[in-house]
Computed example of a mutant assay.
Amino acid sequence: MGTQWSDAAIMRSNGYTVTTSLHYDALFPMLALNRFDYFPRGLYEVWNEAEVHRDEGLRIEKNIMLYYPAPFYFFVNKKDVALAERIERGLKMAQEDGSFDRLLLSFPWFVRGMQEQKNSKRKLFVLDGPAAQP
């Protein structure tokens, strides 16, 4: 996983051994060279990445799925309160009028991920998410 990814800390706190790289693009050849056994990807990421890296001899695992909460954040300058409030207001408006879902569902790889959540052939491993910040 990426060295600074919160996912790496989540995996470690759940007892997994984690191999990291400073560079995202290095992770795919590292996996192909057996530096680690698997590379967990988000359901909205894996299908597109599998296509991009199709010539590297990698495949999507078909029998398991990991789940842990992984929120998305928007970072703005702490002095730009108005921008932060505008982003939050815009996202809430998009959720309320349905345009948020329409946007996500316009991406085939996102739709595929949503469908895969219903795949009853996969064993689901539920991991603890990030600890609450003090």
Rank of each mutant, 00 (worst) to 15 (best):
G2C: 09
T3L: 01
T3H: 02
Q4G: 08
W5D: 00
D7K: 00
A8W: 03
M11T: 00
S13P: 07
G15S: 12
G15F: 15
Y16V: 08
Y16C: 04
Y16A: 08
T17W: 15
V18T: 09
V18M: 12
T20D: 07
S21I: 01
Y24G: 02
D25F: 03
F28P: 12
P29L: 05
L31V: 11
L31C: 11
L31W: 14
A32V: 04
L33V: 08
N34E: 13
N34Q: 13
F36W: 13
D37G: 06
F39N: 12
F39G: 04
P40D: 04
P40A: 09
R41A: 12
R41G: 09
R41L: 10
R41S: 07
G42F: 06
G42C: 11
L43A: 02
Y44W: 15
E45V: 05
E45I: 02
E45S: 04
V46E: 06
V46S: 06
W47C: 01
W47I: 02
E49L: 07
A50W: 13
H53W: 09
D55S: 12
D55W: 15
D55N: 12
G57I: 12
G57Y: 15
G57R: 10
G57E: 14
I60E: 09
I60P: 13
E61P: 09
N63W: 14
I64Y: 15
M65D: 01
L66V: 11
P69D: 12
A70R: 01
P71G: 08
F72V: 07
F72D: 05
Y73V: 01
Y73I: 01
V76E: 03
N77T: 11
K78P: 13
V81K: 14
A82H: 14
L83D: 05
L83I: 08
L83W: 11
I87F: 04
E88A: 07
R89E: 02
R89F: 00
M93D: 04
M93C: 00
M93W: 04
A94D: 08
A94F: 07
G98C: 01
G98V: 00
S99G: 00
D101C: 01
D101G: 00
L104W: 15
L104C: 03
L104H: 09
L105H: 08
F107K: 05
F107I: 05
P108T: 10
W109T: 10
W109G: 04
F110D: 02
F110S: 01
F110T: 02
R112E: 00
R112S: 02
M114V: 11
M114I: 12
E116I: 08
E116L: 13
E116P: 14
Q117D: 10
N119D: 13
S120Q: 09
K121L: 11
K123V: 07
K123H: 15
L124G: 02
A131P: 13
A132P: 11
A132D: 09
A132L: 11
Q133T: 04
